[in-house]
Amino acid sequence: MPVRRGHVAPQNTFLDTIIRKFEGQSRKFIIANARVENCAVIYCNDGFCELCGYSRAEVMQRPCTCDFLHGPRTQRRAAAQIAQALLGAEERKVEIAFYRKDGSCFLCLVDVVPVKNEDGAVIMFILNFEVVMEKDMVGSPAHDTNHRGPPTSWLAPGRAKTFRLKLPALLALTARESSVRSGGAGGAGAPGAVVVDVDLTPAAPSSESLALDEVTAMDNHVAGLGPAEERRALVGPGSPPRSAPGQLPSPRAHSLNPDASGSSCSLARTRSRESCASVRRASSADDIEAMRAGVLPPPPRHASTGAMHPLRSGLLNSTSDSDLVRYRTISKIPQITLNFVDLKGDPFLASPTSDREIIAPKIKERTHNVTEKVTQVLSLGADVLPEYKLQAPRIHRWTILHYSPFKAVWDWLILLLVIYTAVFTPYSAAFLLKETEEGPPATECGYACQPLAVVDLIVDIMFIVDILINFRTTYVNANEEVVSHPGRIAVHYFKGWFLIDMVAAIPFDLLI
């Protein structure tokens, strides 16, 4: 008679799926529990143990900040960024110097990925580790590398530091407007667009060049630039800015003055950032001319202004700041037409079709709590990747769950009947059967004279019903998954307890 339990259901295979997918890609990662103190490590794979030199037993239950890997060259700011990422709910990448158990130093890129439950609360953290440099290539500990984003994938490793954006290309926007319009339909740009040429040739750093990471940081200074100062900065030398009595002219307006920039070969870094931020506020060169004239017309309804409409929906549905990093990277690809469009465009503009998908598509409701890094690593669709929660398995109709209350009560009843059979069957065979043979035949009273025979008949009927119930009862397979398919249940029961239950259900007393 089957006594099969499996009270692990309803099970959740999400954690096993993450481990299996990460292991298949030869990654070095740990999984931490966000619900406990210090976000203790609950799993670390073999790749991480080989990377740091510690065994799994030495890593388990330690804080996922990996303070046991810190050393003299470990930056405090990087460690603080990892700790801050564990307090938030967004994906974050941090470069930090770690030390192995043998004392060797290596520069590592740590990717902190939160995993949320159905309520939107962070319950786990996945920390992925990628070695960037070994100890002989690690720089000085005073050099802070965590304020910069990861290198873009479309640049060669040897040319990542030679990417320079020439400031004269930004200063000569109005001069290039006529050349853009003359391109017409034969050019790649839309009317009114501004073409910015980027020099990728390796050259020595000069005062006129600005690194790509500095251009990325310009967006942080746009908020500090007032509207009046932006307007004066875009007017140009024809209309000098008016300053109040006793007030000095704005240095932001002076930063885009061609006369002032041409007199000296070098520009201050602050002026460069502010000038680029001011130019980015204009949607095209037409807006710059309109600002000089004193009238700013409404933005025209053409394809170039609607190019950012799908980007707005993608940004609203993005799951991490990696989408913004990807957008900034692609927006700086050289030799393309940049349409400086305000994100607050007309909502009635139709979304044009684009061959290049900048932001990841909208994630469906079932995966809105899973970050983009987890979705990318697992390579699963929205119909396959579940949320991290207890999910009731989908069972067929008329199927009994093996952990249901009805099955528990039924098993206790069958257990009592088995005990009765084990006690009274030998007793009936030894004593009652002998008395029946010696006594007179009682054929007239039937079952009324033999109450134990009636009980034995009921017990046999219950055993037959138990066999039928076992054909529709779920079970737990070797992978700790609840199986509810009727065919698989029948095959599993035939290979197991079916023969024993059938022999126990045969009414031998009635056959004798």
Results as ranks from 00 to 15, higher is better:
260 A>F: 08
126 I>Q: 05
267 L>N: 05
320 S>R: 08
198 V>Y: 05
359 I>A: 14
333 I>M: 15
78 A>G: 09
344 K>W: 06
91 E>W: 13
147 H>Q: 03
271 R>K: 09
301 R>I: 09
96 I>W: 01
97 A>F: 15
367 T>Y: 13
95 E>C: 07
270 T>K: 04
106 F>K: 01
96 I>P: 01
378 L>I: 10
251 P>C: 14
84 Q>W: 07
176 R>N: 05
316 L>H: 14
256 L>I: 09
161 K>C: 05
353 T>E: 08
82 I>F: 14
12 N>E: 10
302 H>N: 11
277 A>C: 14
321 D>Q: 11
276 C>L: 08
213 D>Q: 06
126 I>P: 01
258 P>R: 11
107 L>C: 06
276 C>N: 14
380 L>R: 04
293 A>W: 13
179 S>V: 06
352 P>T: 03
45 N>I: 01
74 T>P: 01
58 E>R: 01
361 P>T: 12
85 A>N: 01
115 V>D: 01
291 M>R: 15
97 A>D: 14
279 V>H: 12
83 A>G: 07
9 A>Y: 15
153 S>I: 04
37 E>W: 05
293 A>V: 08
187 G>C: 05
327 Y>F: 12
34 A>H: 05
284 S>G: 11
224 G>Q: 05
66 C>E: 01
304 S>T: 14
87 L>E: 14
368 H>R: 12
17 T>N: 15
351 S>I: 14
172 A>C: 05
65 T>S: 07
240 P>E: 12
54 Y>A: 01
206 S>I: 12
304 S>D: 09
25 Q>P: 11
241 P>V: 14
240 P>A: 15
280 R>W: 09
75 Q>I: 01
22 F>W: 13
131 V>E: 15
213 D>F: 05
293 A>M: 15
385 L>M: 14
26 S>M: 07
247 Q>I: 09
4 R>L: 14
163 F>S: 14
171 L>C: 12
124 M>D: 01
306 G>A: 12
80 A>Y: 06
377 V>C: 06
346 D>V: 11
174 T>I: 12
104 S>Q: 09
29 F>L: 01
117 N>Y: 15
377 V>G: 04
374 V>T: 04
46 D>M: 05
272 S>G: 05
277 A>R: 06
348 F>K: 14
107 L>E: 09
342 D>I: 02
313 S>I: 07
302 H>W: 15
302 H>P: 05
17 T>W: 13
167 L>R: 05
298 P>R: 07
318 S>I: 07
50 E>V: 07
246 G>P: 12
102 D>M: 01
358 I>S: 09
228 A>I: 07
370 V>H: 03
39 C>S: 12
133 M>D: 06
312 R>D: 14
287 D>L: 12
316 L>N: 11
339 N>K: 12
8 V>Y: 13
8 V>M: 15
197 D>I: 01
238 G>M: 08
195 V>I: 11
116 K>M: 13
271 R>L: 09
23 E>N: 06
262 G>I: 06
375 T>V: 14
295 V>E: 15
160 A>M: 11
22 F>T: 07
143 H>I: 14
79 A>V: 13
78 A>N: 10
269 R>Y: 13
240 P>C: 07
218 M>Q: 13
48 F>E: 01
161 K>H: 05
114 P>I: 01
198 V>P: 01
